[in-house]
């Protein structure tokens, strides 16, 4: 029973805090650039505003357009419910492992791409095409670097992977782990839609990738899809943290351990937010045609991580 409560609690935590992280990054970035910027809670206000707007869908849209936004949020929450946030615990029978989580996130991506093509406008198709082409490179790197850490735990179970890394801190410094972490970080930047791959604050449709997907959505549908994207981002961040840097995560469900885990998780997220804000302030977005090189590098790094694991054993 406590297991169910904990799962529900962790899921609620991700769902509730998801819109906060991009707000924190934007606020930090504004301070770094000597601007006042929007308040940290701006994303929540945007979502609340969308809840009050009328929803308009295209004349050309099919039944998919009415269904897809909710399914997108369903996929995102499902992935969130499988992610270990506070406790590195073996999954129970009805949950998913690393591969199933990646699969559910792929389903979310596909649903968003199809939703973008419902209106029959150029921007939706363009964003969907780019999004899927870049993900075709990012996803293998994600799975390969995930595999490198799964190898250490000899399982693809997310809780076991975190637990195995906590249990043997020395393995953390191995070259394969560091290479995989580098690859994972590059993939995360691409998947989060951050500079230098994509600019979340862009207003120019031709350069949009993630924003282009939701260009034709409005009202309630935009609310659902935006929230799904925020949850997906936080799930990815938590996966990066807990598969590669899982310190602080509780090994057993004690109150003190869980409280410490919560503090550690929030502190690591804040550190990542600062890192992303600095990175976004000092680099420029790269040309779209150069992004495949960036992701190809991530792919090669992750392959190298897996291969060096074979050599080092």
């Amino acid at each position: 029973m406590s297991g169910v409560l904990l799962t529900v609690g962790q899921t609620l935590l991700i769902v509730a805090l998801a819109p906060l992280w991009p707000g924190v990054v934007a606020a930090l970035k504004a301070r770094l650039q000597m601007r006042r910027g929007a308040p940290v809670l701006q994303r929540y206000r945007d979502l609340a505003r969308l809840a009050g707007k009328e929803t308009v869908i295209s004349d050309d849209a099919s039944w998919l357009a009415r269904l897809a936004p909710a399914v997108a949020l369903g996929c995102a929450i499902t992935a969130a419910s499988w992610t270990p946030v506070l406790l590195a615990r073996e999954a129970s029978g009805l949950t998913g492992d690393l591969l199933l989580t990646v699969g559910v996130l792929a389903a979310l991506r596909l649903v968003l791409a199809l939703l973008a093509m419902e209106c029959g406008t150029s921007f939706g198709g363009m964003a969907a095409s780019r999004h899927l082409a870049l993900s075709a490179l990012a996803e293998p790197a994600l799975i390969l670097s995930g595999f490198t850490v799964a190898m250490a735990a000899s399982s693809t179970d997310l809780g076991r992977i975190s637990g195995a890394i906590v249990a043997s801190p020395a393995a953390w410094m191995s070259p394969s782990h560091l290479l995989a972490l580098a690859a994972m970080a590059m993939v995360a930047i691409a998947e989060l839609g951050r500079v230098p791959v994509d600019n979340p604050a862009t207003h120019l449709e031709l350069t949009m990738i993630h924003e282009g997907l939701v260009l034709d959505l409005s009202g309630r549908h935009l609310l659902l899809v935006s929230w799904a994207s925020y949850i997906r981002q936080l799930v990815l961040l938590t996966l990066v943290l807990h598969l590669f840097l899982p310190w602080g995560i509780a090994a057993s469900p004690s109150a003190a351990g869980l409280a410490l885990a919560l503090v550690a998780w929030l502190a690591k997220l804040a550190a990542l937010a600062l890192a992303v804000a600095v990175l976004e302030s000092v680099t420029a977005k790269m040309r779209l045609f150069r992004v495949p090189e960036f992701l190809g590098l991530a792919f090669l790094l992750s392959l190298l991580a897996l291969a060096s694991d074979a050599l080092m054993r």
Binding site: P69, A70, L73, G74, S81, A91, G93, L94, L99
Partner: peptide, 25 residues
């Protein structure tokens, strides 16, 4: 080897949370 994947679990969970999403909206 300790890792499990439940197709029914995934389907039920996505359906359930989609329903919650519709209600919330």
């Amino acid at each position: 080897a300790g890792a499990s994947a439940s197709p029914v679990g995934a389907a039920v969970s996505v359906a359930l949370f989609s329903g919650v999403a519709v209600l919330l909206a």
